[in-house]
């Protein structure tokens, strides 16, 4: 299905896109048809700075299973860093 449902969140940091590094201010998270990945649906994340226009975007399209593994890896890395990641 086309879910269209998007879960946005503010982020602070940088990403490297087609024009090099830029600051990102938002992450759009949604589960829907991918543009490129060879799956019917993927967990998509757009790291973006909308104020810089549509091209200021770093996109990933992940299978549902790999997206869940990514969440675990992020949480594990943050936990391992301890106080430094608080």
């Amino acid at each position: 299905m086309c879910s269209y449902l998007t879960v946005p969140t503010d982020v602070a940091g940088s990403a490297k896109g087609a024009q090099g590094w830029f600051s990102v201010t938002s992450a759009q998270v949604y589960f829907d048809h991918p543009f490129h990945a060879p799956f019917d649906h993927t967990l998509n994340i757009d790291f973006a700075d909308p104020s810089r226009g549509p091209g200021a975007r770093v996109a990933v399209e992940l299978s549902a299973e790999s997206a869940r593994r990514l969440v675990e890896s992020i949480n594990a890395a943050l936990a391992a860093a301890g106080a430094a990641a608080r």
Partner: peptide, 20 residues
């Protein structure tokens, strides 16, 4: 309307964020 030179996938993401 997202820009004639914008990559189609970036234009789609921005249009999606705008609600279509």
């Amino acid at each position: 309307r997202q820009g004639l030179e914008v990559d189609p996938d970036d234009a789609a993401a921005a249009t999606r964020e705008a609600g279509g």
